Simulated assay, not measured.
Amino acid sequence: MRLLVIGAGIGGLALARGLLATGHQVTVLEQAPSPRTTGSAITVWSGGVGVLRALGVSTEGLGTRIDRLENRTDAGEHLYSIDVAHAARRLGHPSITAPRRDLLARLADGLPEGTVEYGRRFVRAKEGGSGVQAVLADGDTAEGDLLIGADGHHSAVRRHLWGQDPTEPAGWATWQGLIDLRPRITGPHHGLMINGRAGFCGLLPAGPDTLQWWFSFPWRPGGPGGPGVSGVSGAAGAPALPLLRERFAHWAAPVPAVLEGLREAEIEMFPHHTHRVRRIWGGERSTLLGDAAHTMPPIVAQGANQALEDAWVLARLLAHRPGNLTAALRRYEHFRSRRVSPIARLAATEYTYRYHPPRWDRLVPGPLVTRAYGRWLYATSDYLRGRRRWW
């Protein structure tokens, strides 16, 4: 079977690996002129790591393993810690944080030459009983038996299939980046989540000497520090770094040290978007995957993980149900929409962006939080649910 995948992001490359492993022919069409190197880091939880390994992607030396997540107030007061390593032992796979570019390189490694075609921007598709044709911006076309849109939260395939872009601003935004401060900020496998009146800060090791940092707070399009020509300046011309320092420099250590080490040119900003997850995503010969199907804010760190889950489920369905392709696509959408809808709804509430941490957070025993978190990771993963029982 010939499959066209639109988008060479995490979900698109993962799907290509899964389909190629089962004997299908795959062409990935990516509008960027070359492999993407932008983006900060990605946290891949146990289920996502399991999918990577099942797809033949080595996670050895990829980023850094996360063993503990500590939650603090902006005054430096400890709230609770999550023993991520304990959940990893029960679920069979660790959780890791790695630069996005490194994860993309691992996913692309070993793909047959010519699998990914760069500089190929999708415009529209023509579906019929015998296949699908993708029409590209340069007037060229590509043909296949199925077309899968894995082209992100501004998906051109979704606009074509749904007739609109359903995403709406979620009212928050994130400023993020990578710096070489990890040994002085966190332990080698220790992440910090800090929240207060100004917003939210996250710090995670993403390599031997690399720290992923991010700040999130309420923001509307056109606000200061938003994406402009440079990618960091807002409509009013205000750069991002002074805004972040004004808002967060008074927080307890280690936040001031992180802010001191930032440089304007290295700051990436993205507004949060959300939309209701539909039950049907595609047409007779098409469907969607990842952010194209279920855009969600990053608060629960599930965007990349659910793209990996989509890829794993769809590749398996197409391997075991090659007869009625339309029925296989609808089964995939039904199965995955039920799993990802509650995750997207939770992410859309910006649930953990709390200006005033509840007092009971200080009273919850660490083992109880750890157990609940492990159950949450298990519940979000079709890969884990299909391979092992929880406790």
Rank of each mutant, 00 (worst) to 15 (best):
A315G: 07
L103E: 03
V277Q: 04
T287G: 08
G39R: 11
G223L: 02
V44W: 05
I96W: 06
Y378N: 04
A347S: 14
A21M: 09
W214M: 13
G119K: 03
R362V: 00
W390E: 15
W45N: 13
G207S: 08
R338H: 10
R220E: 12
V51P: 11
R336M: 12
W172F: 13
R124Y: 01
E284P: 01
I10D: 02
V340A: 06
D83V: 06
A98F: 04
A304T: 14
L104P: 00
W45Q: 14
A327C: 05
A257W: 00
R197S: 10
V5K: 03
D140K: 14
S40F: 03
A315E: 12
V28N: 07
A8H: 03
I10C: 00
A235E: 14
L262I: 05
R330S: 08
L181H: 07
G114L: 05
V28S: 11
L377C: 10
I267H: 12
T352G: 01
D74C: 06
S216Y: 02
A105I: 06
T326S: 10
A8E: 04
L384M: 08
H190E: 15
H24A: 10
E246P: 00
A75I: 02
W162Y: 07
W219R: 15
V132N: 04
K126E: 10
T38E: 14
A14C: 06
A235Y: 05
V340F: 00
V277E: 01
A137R: 09
I179R: 13
D109P: 01
R263Q: 14
G199L: 00
V258A: 09
A265V: 11
L19N: 03
A125Q: 10
A240S: 13
S337H: 04
H160F: 08
P218H: 07
G237H: 12
V123E: 15
L13C: 07
L317Y: 07
L289G: 10
R17D: 04
A236Q: 14
L384V: 01
L368W: 07
Q212P: 04
N305C: 15
G366A: 14
R184E: 13
V57L: 05
G76S: 04
L377R: 11
P242E: 13
R338N: 07
L289K: 01
L262G: 06
N305M: 05
A87D: 14
Y355A: 15
A108D: 08
H334K: 07
I10K: 06
R120N: 03
W213P: 08
G199H: 07
A75W: 02
I66F: 05
E77K: 15
S40Y: 09
D83P: 12
P188T: 01
S58C: 06
A301D: 06
S155N: 08
R100W: 09
D138Q: 03
A88N: 12
N305D: 07
I148C: 09
L204P: 03
I280A: 13
R120D: 05
A238D: 15
A236G: 15
G7Q: 03
T37N: 03
G163F: 02
L136N: 07
S233K: 15
A304E: 01
I148S: 06
L136A: 10
